[in-house]
Simulated assay, not measured.
Amino acid sequence: MLNAVDQNIISRRTIKAFKQDPVDVEEIIELLNIAKWAPNHKVNEPWRFQLYTGAGKEKFVQAYVNAMPTIEGYVSQKVLNKAQYFRDIPLHLVVIMPEDPRQRRWDEDYGAISSLIQNFQLAAWERGIGMIWRSNDWIYDPKFRDAIGVTPGEKIVATLMIGYPKHVPEKRPRTDIREKLIIINE
């Protein structure tokens, strides 16, 4: 029998189509304060966030546009269409971690921040807020990083596009875990 947490995990979907209804920034802060309870070695909280809302979204959108290749100095229609899509999404949350040069610490930090993001997605989903976790090529572009103030030695783990779902995709089948599990009992 599935409990409420189980149901929330199973029902959560990646949302790509958003209503233009605003999402309360204070609610996002509250959700991040819940999500921060992710497993975190040494409780070093290896994360920081930048939230783009209202007119502030334009800084995020322009950073994206400026990071995209141009053709003879012109931005492609595809890029302009994507920029408008980004403008229409209520919130953009950039999730950033320090890149520790020690591989073990880097791995632990990345695991912690990924857990935080999943906690955030699940807590938001419970309240009817959806998102998509993007890690597209342009987040690595120095033009994009510089434009939003991400410094060398920091990694953008995700750009989360957040809003109320206009459409919730159907559940796609997942492989039964028994097909991916080896049980060693001797």
Rank of each mutant, 00 (worst) to 15 (best):
M1P: 11
M1D: 15
L2N: 03
Q7L: 11
N8K: 09
S11M: 11
R12G: 04
I15L: 01
A17P: 06
F18T: 07
Q20E: 10
D21G: 11
D21T: 15
P22T: 07
V23M: 05
V23D: 03
D24I: 00
E26H: 12
E27Q: 15
I29V: 14
I29M: 11
E30T: 05
L32I: 04
H41G: 05
H41M: 06
H41W: 08
V43Q: 15
N44S: 14
N44D: 07
E45I: 00
Q50G: 08
L51S: 06
L51H: 03
Y52H: 02
Y52S: 02
Y52Q: 01
T53P: 02
T53I: 13
G56S: 04
K57Q: 12
K57H: 07
E58A: 04
F60T: 00
V61N: 02
V61C: 09
Q62K: 10
V65M: 14
V65T: 10
T70R: 12
I71L: 13
E72C: 06
G73Y: 10
V75H: 14
S76P: 12
S76W: 07
Q77F: 14
K82F: 03
K82R: 11
I89D: 04
P90Y: 05
L91I: 10
L93H: 09
V95C: 04
P101E: 12
R102G: 13
D109Q: 07
Y110I: 08
G111P: 01
G111L: 01
G111Y: 01
S115C: 14
Q118A: 14
F120I: 14
A123L: 10
W125S: 06
W125I: 07
E126Y: 09
E126P: 03
I129K: 00
G130A: 02
M131H: 10
S135K: 10
N136H: 02
P142D: 03
K143Q: 14
D146Y: 03
D146G: 11
I148T: 04
G149N: 02
T151P: 02
E154I: 01
A158T: 06
A158S: 15
K166M: 07
P169R: 13
P173W: 08
T175H: 14
R178C: 12
E179V: 05
E179W: 13
L181V: 15
I183G: 05
I184C: 00
E186W: 04
E186T: 05
